[in-house]
Amino acid sequence: MNEYEERLRSWVGRELSVPKPGQDPVNVPMIRHWVEAMADPNPVYLDEEAARATGRDGIVAPASMMQAWTMRGYAATVNPRPGAGDGMAELIALLDEGGYTSVVATDSEFEFHRELVPGDHVSAGEVVEAISPEKNTALGAGRFITTVRTYRDQDGEVVAVQRWRTLRFRPKAPQERPEAPQERPEAPQERPEAPQEREKPRALRPRPAVNLDNAFWFEAAREHRLVVQRCAACKALRHPPGPCCPQCGSFDWDTVDSAGDGHVYSYVVNHHPPHPAFDMPYIVAVVELAEGTRLITNLTGVAPEEVEIGMPVVLEWLEADPELTLPVFRPAAPRKER
């Protein structure tokens, strides 16, 4: 791991901003602006009587407005003044140093603990949960920054928790850009409805055959967890997923998380037939995990002629499109000079 990587890694777990109250408490005028702009017809946001008829004490703010109560506003956006101990500004400076100067939001996962009412005053603290290795995306090479924001009311009670993911990337030169940049730019195949014309971004990867027996594996992959099915009776690990233990016949199972280390057990290089979702040629490998099971996957970050049987590899996540996340592997260490 190089020094820059170390410095980035040191941010994981750190607090980016000390919670401070939003500019304004929850109030009716801001709710009205939101509801008008969203064209939201729900009466409980502005009509006291309608809100009480639903069992509430009075009007409430839309749940989705949570983040808006903590936005920094116009002046601080056009003229940011980072204060001492402003972790966010420091992290952004470190990312700028790596060339990751642009940003797009990709994911927001909100859990709401209670509804907000006028007079509530919300603060948000933010902690770094993960910083990804550099990924190649349609907009340029970048890193996904995942943070967890905890929203608290004036009494310090948690009112919502949000997992928030942005891509910080090096913008590509205009001629390298895809025809239409996308807000989830690492997924160049995310246009299922777009006609398959030559100038359009590539097609979607083939859909995996997901069923009741293997859905857990693909769901875990979406959360960037590579899981291995384990027999609950005899503890034998197995892959691919199946309903029944091939060792002892038990139908009871759970999973373990793989650490993501393995080696190339076998591989082929596909040159033909061409498929619009893939750059030819590409590597299909059987990777044996340190846990012992093998899976069929793709190798990335290595040329076909450099792959060797037994080569140590590490897990990386491919965000193929909004509905498909897959584990792929790249060489674990710098390759030997020849």
């Binding site: 969203m38 069992g55 749940a63 989705s64 994911d107 927001s108 996962e109 859990e111």
Partner: peptide, 23 residues
């Protein structure tokens, strides 16, 4: 949020919104 609560009606309370952006 609007889409879900318009269908559910005003008595519904939103407990989670988890989204991933694409195009």
């Amino acid at each position: 949020d609007r889409y879900a609560t318009s269908w559910a009606g005003p008595a519904a309370r939103v407990r989670a919104i988890r989204i991933r952006l694409g195009a």
